[in-house]
Write a protein that binds this DNA or RNA. Sequence first.
DNA 1: ACAAAAGTGTTGTAACTACACCCATGT
DNA 2: ACATGGGTGTAGTTACAACACTTTTGT
Lengths: 239, 239
Amino acid sequence: MAFKEDFIKTAEGYVYEYPRAAMTADSVIFGFDGKDLQVLLVKRGIEPFKGAWAFPGGFLRMEETIEECAKRELKEETMLEQAYMEQFGVFSEVNRDPRGRIITTAFYALVNIADVQGGDDAEEAKWFPIDKIPTLAFDHDRILRVAMRKLREDLHFRPVGFELLPEKFTMTQLQHLYEAILDIHFDRRNFLKKMQTTGILDDTGEKENGTAHRAATYYRFNRERYEHFKSKHNFNLEF
Amino acid sequence: MAFKEDFIKTAEGYVYEYPRAAMTADSVIFGFDGKDLQVLLVKRGIEPFKGAWAFPGGFLRMEETIEECAKRELKEETMLEQAYMEQFGVFSEVNRDPRGRIITTAFYALVNIADVQGGDDAEEAKWFPIDKIPTLAFDHDRILRVAMRKLREDLHFRPVGFELLPEKFTMTQLQHLYEAILDIHFDRRNFLKKMQTTGILDDTGEKENGTAHRAATYYRFNRERYEHFKSKHNFNLEF
DNA sequence: ACAAAAGTGTTGTAACTACACCCATGT
DNA sequence: ACATGGGTGTAGTTACAACACTTTTGT
C-alpha cells in the first residue's frame, strides 16, 4: 500500500482519531431483453433486510478506488470483466443503513443481457423488468429513481444505448430500447431517419434469419466515427 | 444520533473492525462577473500543499449528509446560507491525499458573485477567472475539469445559468454567461430568439441606468413557468 | 389466407444559422 | 463627434412530426 497509514492497528481493530463512515459501492445493472429494460437484483441472504431484493454492492477496500470496488462487485454477480459504468450519486443519509453510518456511491452499469450467466455468488440473482421492481432494501428505491433519471439524461449526450445490445442489432431493437428507457413512443420512420443522420450506425448488410416475419437488417455502432465527430458543437436547450 | 453506533470509543480513538477511509466534501464554487466565469479558491494554510490553492472543503461529520457537509463549508467560505449545488463525482484514488485514504465527493455551487463577501475563515479566499486558474492542490485540477464538463452538460437540461446572475439581468449578461461556460460564441439576435422561445424569461420592463450607452432591458427568470413546462418531451440527440 | 414485422416518402411546420443597419446614451 | 453597446428582421436551410401502404416470411 502506497498511501500513508492514518490509523493505528490494535487487537481490537483499526483506530482513528475521528469517527468515520464506512463506504460501499452499489450498482444498478441494466439489461435489455429486446422488449423491456431490466434490472439485476440480488436477494439478501443476511440481515438487515434479509430476504429483500437489493442492488449488488459491497464495502470498499483500502487498496482500491470506488470504481474498482463497483467493478469487482459487478464481476462477482455477473462474471463480466468489463461493462459501461457510470457514477451517478452519493447517498449519505445518516440512517440509510441500520448497521451504522454507511455511505454508498451508486453506479449504473449497462450490460448485454445475453452475456450474463448467473454469478458465482451463493445469493440469488434475478432480472426484473423496470416496471415490476419489488420494494427494495435500504434506500435502493430512491437510488433506482435517480439511476433512471441519469440514464435518461445520458442517453441524449452519449450513445449509451448500444452498450445494452449485442454487437449487431436491428433498428426495431434499438427503437424499443430507446422507448423503454425514455418511456415515450417513436414513429418507426422518424426514428430511423434520426439515427441515420447521426452517422454512427453502420448497415452490416446482414439479415436476420429464422424469424417469423420479414428479415430485418442488422446494424452496428461505429465507435470510431462517433469518437471522430463528437466534438462538433450543437447547442440545444432541452428544458 | 439516531443511527446505531458501529464503533467502539476508546481513549485512543474510534475503533472499527475494518479499515475505513475518511470522507470529505469539496466544492467548486462558480461565480460570474459579467465577463468571465470565475472560481473561488482558498489558499491552504497548513500542510499538505501549504500555500497552494484549493477548493473549499472539509471532513464529513457523523451527524450530517454529504450535502449538508458541502453546504456547511460553503457557508464558512462565503457566508451564503443557500446556493444551487450539484454533486458531480466521487474522487477516490488511493493516493490522492498524502495524509491517508481520503475520499471526496465533489460538488459545484453556483452563486451570484455580488452576494459573496469574504468568509469568516482565516484562510485567504480569492476569485480566479476560469482561464487563469493556478496549479491546484491534491487532484483538484482534475476535479475542476470534471466540474466544467458537468456544468456544461447541465446547462442544456436545466436553467442553471440564472443561479449565477442577480435576480434581474440583461440579455447581454446572460449571453456572456452562456458563452463563458460553453466557450462558444452566439449571434446576439439568435440568442435572444432562442431564449424567448423557452418562455421562461420575463421582461421586467425596467431599464439599466447610468450606463455609458443605450440602456438595456432587464429580464427575470420565471421559475414557476419553468416548473410548469419542464415536463414536455422533446428528444434531441446531442452526440 | 393470414398474421407479423420490415421497408419506405412526402408535406407542413418549427427551429436554426447567417447576416447589417440604425438608435440611444454618455463622454 | 464619436464610441459603446442595444435593438431589430429576413431568407435559406435543416430537423422534426405526422402520416399509410406494400413486401416478405412463416404458419
